[in-house]
């Protein structure tokens, strides 16, 4: 039996389709990633799978329970780490976990034992009696993860677990997620960080505009795109793309502002040809780069745009302003 089975799940808000009849399943013990820009429908999907939002149509089973008709059973068997912070900063770390345990029906002794376990896991044991308002962003996120694990769920949902954290702290969080994975818990995470999906996930679904564009292991996704990627930065990217396409060196050039990317079988041979073609057409080449495909190339290939050019930063600023209470 799969941990999560989603069948043509759809969510519409006043005519706007946030999630467009998606279907997928997550195996037990798998670390499954939803990769996409902000507004792609990732969080909406998580909300539906965690029974916080009811679907417009379609169905989903989590741990074998239907999200529509068996909400309480679903809730007991899952842990959630939301995108925005949800720990109570005016309580100690211990009280946050203790009250969570009560809300999930754990008795006193098992709460106490489990708090020790999860606090050790996230290496915050020394901080358990400190008020959460004194915690840094990374520590709060770790505490959220600990709380999500408090009632020993079978599946953990992580919605953008490293959003807004510095690279070092992000690495740190990744190591905890890897540790959890080794313990055998099923994890579904959403992210708009390509490296994160690549580094952590067993399988990745690339989502855009509420639909899954492609779903596979990061390795196979990268393998879908030729052997190498040649990226050329120039003054006339449009013209360069046409020239290279006409000469038949690469058939699907991708544009991202001043950079054109070509998927080629053998980069070493293609690179001089592309450069020659550019010079022949009188195009000024600023830089040229040869590399193995990354998930970003896959992302651009399937969605037609770079994940970085989305308006993610603006949304995040808004979220930050909100959380400061302006």
């Amino acid at each position: 039996m799969d941990a999560i089975v989603v069948d043509r799940l759809e969510k519409r808000f006043n005519g706007f389709t946030a999630v467009d009849k998606i279907s997928f399943s997550v195996k037990k013990g798998e670390l499954f990633g939803f990769l996409g820009p902000n507004g792609a429908g990732k969080s909406t999907t998580i909300y539906m799978l965690t029974t916080l939002l009811s679907p417009t149509s379609g169905s989903a089973k989590v741990n074998g329970f239907d999200v529509g008709t068996q909400a309480d059973d679903v809730r007991k068997s899952i842990g959630i780490v939301f995108q925005d912070p949800t720990v109570d900063t005016r309580l100690s770390a211990y009280d946050n976990l203790d009250i969570h345990g009560m809300l999930y029906g754990m008795d006193g002794p098992s709460r106490k034992a489990r708090i020790r376990e999860v606090m050790e896991l996230i290496e915050l044991s020394d901080w358990q009696d400190k008020m959460v308002k004194t915690f840094s962003g990374g520590m709060r996120r770790r505490l959220e993860i600990a709380r999500g694990l408090m009632h020993t769920p079978n599946i953990l949902f992580l919605d953008e677990p490293t959003l807004g954290l510095d690279p070092q702290t992000r690495r740190h969080i990744w190591s905890y997620i890897e540790k959890l994975k080794r313990q055998g818990i099923t994890i579904m995470l959403t992210t708009h960080y390509l490296e994160e999906a690549d580094f952590l996930c067993d399988r990745v679904a690339i989502v855009d505009h509420g639909a899954i564009k492609v779903l596979d292991t990061p390795k196979r996704l990268k393998g879908m795109i030729g052997g190498n990627v040649v990226r050329v930065s120039s003054s006339e990217p449009q013209k360069l793309a046409e020239v290279v396409k006409r000469k038949g060196f690469a058939d699907k050039p991708r544009m991202d502002e001043t950079v054109v990317s070509f998927d080629v079988k053998d980069g070493g041979k293609a690179l001089p040809k592309i450069l020659e073609a550019a010079i022949g057409a009188g195009i000024e080449v600023e830089s040229i780069e040869l590399r193995v495909p990354s998930l970003e190339d896959v992302f651009i290939h399937y969605t037609g745009s770079s994940i970085r050019s989305e308006k993610g930063a603006g949304d995040m600023m808004m979220a930050m302003r909100r959380s400061r209470g302006y």
Partner: peptide, 14 residues
């Protein structure tokens, strides 16, 4: 709602 703890309560099995 603003600081998020409401979600923690609304997601609980109760």
């Amino acid at each position: 709602r603003e600081f998020g703890f409401l979600k923690e309560m609304l997601a609980a099995p109760t």
